[in-house]
Computed example of a mutant assay.
Amino acid sequence: MDRSKLKAILCDLDGVIRIHPNIAGSIEQKYGLPTGSIFSTAFEPGLLKQAITGKISDIQWRQAIFKNLSKKFPKQDTKSALESWYEPSSYVDIEALNYILSISPNALLVLVTNATSRLKEDLRALSIIDKFDIIVNSSQIGFIKPDTEIFSHSLELAKCKPEDALFIDDKIENTDAAAKFGLFAHHYTSLVNLKSYISVNAAKYPTSSN
């Protein structure tokens, strides 16, 4: 990977740029819900897939979460618990975002995320929507990572080939799929590891800026 020749950086949102503090446990304790009950209900695979492929809207997804959680725990104040969970608590890892932007200043930054219909609202609230040249939201196109269609769609929008792009994601199944598709792929576990990955590759292909 030659940093100077990268045409696009495809980057995940959650776990890389946007961080979600784990507040569910304290909310469940407060409202007498079993540990893990909010996550297991909200992210039940079948329900979540409908939301991130655009088959249902974000509002419909949240309504389904409430309905399902209330059925499981009819004696608990699930409405208040979910309202507390819905309260904005995520934040941007500014250091990670700025570093990703600096990897190859001439490359397009393409957000590639499995998200609901509320994505742009969330990005505006975090004041980062203008940081991305292209936004690929799974709920708009009907394909999710690690489907190959989401990679081909992203590259088509960026007008570049797989070998001219770097993909960054915190889920190894997504980076494995991206690598098989022909992209340079980094499994994000920390900013330190990302910097190390870029440094090693940059050392192989020194540019005038190094």
Results as ranks from 00 to 15, higher is better:
111 L>W: 10
112 V>R: 07
35 T>W: 15
168 I>H: 12
172 I>W: 15
77 D>V: 00
178 A>D: 13
181 F>C: 05
37 S>N: 02
140 Q>P: 03
20 H>A: 01
195 K>L: 01
5 K>W: 08
24 A>P: 00
93 D>F: 04
180 K>F: 14
53 T>D: 03
183 L>N: 04
154 S>H: 05
198 I>K: 13
102 S>L: 02
91 Y>A: 02
117 S>G: 08
99 Y>A: 01
57 S>P: 06
2 D>F: 09
51 A>S: 06
94 I>F: 03
40 S>W: 08
5 K>T: 06
99 Y>K: 04
134 I>W: 06
150 I>H: 02
199 S>V: 14
127 S>L: 12
99 Y>F: 13
72 K>R: 12
110 V>C: 00
37 S>T: 04
51 A>K: 14
84 S>K: 11
147 D>P: 02
182 G>N: 09
175 T>Q: 05
133 D>L: 05
72 K>N: 09
41 T>Q: 10
198 I>V: 10
50 Q>D: 12
135 I>G: 07
168 I>W: 12
182 G>K: 11
29 Q>K: 15
83 E>Y: 08
100 I>W: 01
66 F>D: 15
107 A>R: 11
58 D>E: 14
55 K>T: 12
169 D>R: 13
153 H>L: 07
47 L>N: 00
188 Y>I: 02
202 A>D: 12
64 A>Q: 13
81 A>F: 07
183 L>C: 10
43 F>T: 00
201 N>S: 02
121 E>Y: 14
81 A>M: 04
120 K>E: 09
174 N>F: 15
29 Q>F: 15
46 G>C: 04
121 E>N: 08
129 I>V: 11
42 A>G: 07
42 A>P: 05
200 V>M: 14
123 L>P: 08
186 H>M: 13
150 I>D: 05
50 Q>A: 07
171 K>T: 13
84 S>N: 11
107 A>N: 08
